[in-house]
């Protein structure tokens, strides 16, 4: 994508942010970080409601860790890790779903195998090529404050694709989560939908790594949804609560990170954990 096009695409978004009266928002890196989180966190929140419903938290964790191997492979084969990582994540996601279906193993056992296999491969590569290890911390902890305009456009594309998918398929996915054979009787293409969902979830996880790091990606998906599960009074309100909590904790986290110089990803997750804590303390709806 040409730099000119990227600049044009992002101009209206930057203009919107410049309307805020905070000095820190004038900094370009901060504007990019805020835009990234405004694009990413609602997508993660809504996908997260499905992850919670399908009990797939461990799946997203396994995908996140497989990204580590994707990066190592990318560095080894001289492919930009920002490309190698999402591709490897998708391959791992699809492979896991296929393995689960072909065998008669439980999902968590299948994931245990895939998880260890990818990590072992990643560690083997990194330990053999010590020079690669330098590039890893950025992916382990993420760095939303260092995102480039080019990456921001990719985030925008991901957000559009996932939102379109959710608008068309959310109801049927939720129905499927309640009783898969019943969903089949009701004409939902269960097998294909499962694969597409796993693919988009893997992609979402891979993109989120840039923002919050491998170790905290699952939190970005699961914590707003888990909090909303206690606050919402219907499937619909759960989604809006999840989105609100995700946006609030992202912005609060960025502000905290700037004020106290903590890692942005960690600060964002801590705010959402705080929201989760409050939801536990409130009486269940």
């Amino acid at each position: 994508m040409s730099d000119q096009l990227i600049v044009e695409l992002l101009k209206p978004l930057y203009w919107l942010l410049s309307l805020f009266p905070f000095d820190v928002m004038k900094a370009h890196f901060m504007q990019r970080a805020i835009l990234t989180m405004l694009l990413l966190s609602p997508v993660c929140a809504v996908m997260g409601t499905l992850v919670v419903q399908f009990r797939m938290a461990f799946f997203s964790d396994a995908i996140a860790h497989s990204a580590f191997t994707g990066i190592a492979l990318g560095l080894l084969l001289n492919i930009d890790p920002r490309f190698a990582m999402p591709i490897f994540a998708i391959i791992t996601g699809i492979m896991t779903m296929r393995l689960k279906r072909a065998g008669d193993l439980a999902m968590d056992t299948t994931l245990g195998v895939v998880f260890s296999a990818t990590i072992a491969l990643g560690l083997a590569i990194i330990s053999a090529k010590k020079c690669l290890a330098k590039s890893l911390p950025g992916f382990l902890y993420g760095d939303v404050l260092a995102i480039s305009d080019g990456e921001l456009v990719w985030m925008l594309l991901l957000a559009v694709v996932v939102w379109v998918f959710l608008l068309v398929w959310y109801n049927r996915l939720l129905f499927m989560s309640l009783h898969t054979p019943l969903a089949r009787v009701h004409g939902i293409p269960v097998e294909r939908l499962e694969i597409v969902f796993a693919t988009l979830l893997s992609l979402t996880v891979a993109f989120s790594i840039r923002a919050v790091g491998i170790l905290l990606v699952t939190a970005l998906l699961v914590i707003p949804a888990a909090t909303a599960r206690r606050l919402g009074r219907s499937a619909g309100s759960q989604v809006w609560w999840a989105i609100s909590i995700a946006i609030f904790s992202s912005i609060a986290g960025l502000a905290t990170s700037v004020s106290y110089d903590t890692a942005a990803g960690a600060a964002m997750i801590l705010w959402s954990v705080a929201a989760f804590g409050i939801s536990l303390w409130l009486p269940a709806s």
């Binding site: 959310y170 109801n171 939720l174 129905f175 309640l178 939902i188 599960r229 219907s234 619909g236």
Partner: peptide, 26 residues
């Protein structure tokens, strides 16, 4: 049904899920 008992999905949500494509959150 085989699901998370703590989920806020209501009976109306369930009956709407296979009847409309528009997500129930809209």
């Amino acid at each position: 049904l085989d699901f998370d008992r703590g989920s806020p999905i209501t009976v109306l949500d369930f009956l709407a899920l296979d009847r409309q494509k528009l997500p129930t959150w809209l």
